[in-house]
Design a protein around this nucleic acid. Sequence first.
RNA 1: GUGGCUAUGGUGUAGCGGUUAGCACCAGAGUUUGUGGAACUCUUAGUUCGGGUUCGACUCCCGAUAGCCACCCCA
Length: 430
Amino acid sequence: MSKKLSTEAYKGVRDFYPEDMAVQNQIFTIWRNVAEKFGYQEYNASVLEPADLYRAKSGEEIVNDQTYTFTDRGEREVTLRPEITPTVARMVAARKRELGYPLRWYSIPNLFRYEQPQRGRIREFWQLNVDIFGVDSLQAEIETIQMAYEITKAYGLTDADFEIRISSRKILNHITQTLFGLDFEKSQKLLKLTDKKNKLPTDVFTATAEGILGDVPEGKKIKQFLTLLNSQNFEEFTQNLQQSAEEHEGIRETREVLQALEKLGITNARFDQTLVRGSDYYTGIIFEVFDKNPLNRRSVFGGGRYDDLLDLFGGEKVPAVGFGAGDVIARDLLETYGKIVKPESSFPADIYICLMNKEVAEYAQDVAQALRGKGKRVALDYSFRKIGDQIKNANKIHIPNIICIGEEEVKTGNLKIKNLATGNEESYKL
RNA sequence: GUGGCUAUGGUGUAGCGGUUAGCACCAGAGUUUGUGGAACUCUUAGUUCGGGUUCGACUCCCGAUAGCCACCCCA
């Protein structure tokens, strides 16, 4: 024999044994139920996309370092999709004129990212993506946030376990560009820093911000910046923003969303000026669902408005709002909050037919087929072992009822369906 | 990409510079049992891989690989 093959899965990807698949299906069911409850249609696409699709939006560096990209035999550069938003944007743009708006679409794609695996981050994962196209108004944001809220509740979290953080790119850009007069590049830098505020020591954060703002002599900007970031709530923030605050679009929108959510009974939404999100394509409201449990402390959902993304494909604008939710964190949450459905309750079959010897095989097949005709799921044991061993096997693979077939049953046609858990017997005649 | 920790039968683990590498579960064989999630007996199977130090390495050192954690990044 030559070198033995490893039984391990490829780095950063998972095998789904039946018990893992059961959990995966449980998660997908939660996602599908909520998406369809809100009238969303499912779509999908190939995992392969031309590399240019991601270069256009994310830049060369991200494509080279963080995706699986290769050259095919026709010299085309191909990437395993690291997200599906560019794909859905492409699909919508391709049929822009013939699709009816508002367009509500969802998908559960597997995505690939070439990263160092760690808790909550692996190389292949599944993600629910929900997008609504063609809605200018804030109703789109409100609706998708409501969906994120419902899914989080379905994971088993209570309102106190998580919070919905809401921010606005319009406000953030207003601060960096209008208020502080930063150019695009510096603005991006400051926003990235803002996103990390809670992770960095205060003095490091302040020093770095000062460097970007570059007003060392007076220090007026940095003072104002810190005041804004340290605002305890939305009202305090708007007051600190002063002058044009009331008229500013971002402020108005954020207030409207917060109020609408409260009216819907969603009380754990709050404004968070340090929420930025990595993606450059967001144009308005952005939001995240955040688990407050110290075990997770991670973003469960993230999304926002991206009105300009479809411009990449030319033609007129299509406004869009969407969010994504990963299966890895969903699994962690279901585990944390004890919502995993035990595999014992998901039987592969209803009835297990135990054969005493080879002679009864044909008869047993007939019985099985008759029961299947009545909508029962039936599996047979072909080992012809001792009846005790066959029952043991039925228990191991979680089949609740058995029928034993030997010479006597074939002769008389009297069958007994026995429930292994309760011991109850039910007569059955073929 | 960088750093820290880890790696023992299929699974979970114990242990040691010289041991027949121990235990539990699982699996397999057999005995008993026509209805029981059974009992009893026996068996198989392991030091991740590649170097080095040593009389001798599962044990110590280096490298690779994989896992966990953190950084980076996070679409």
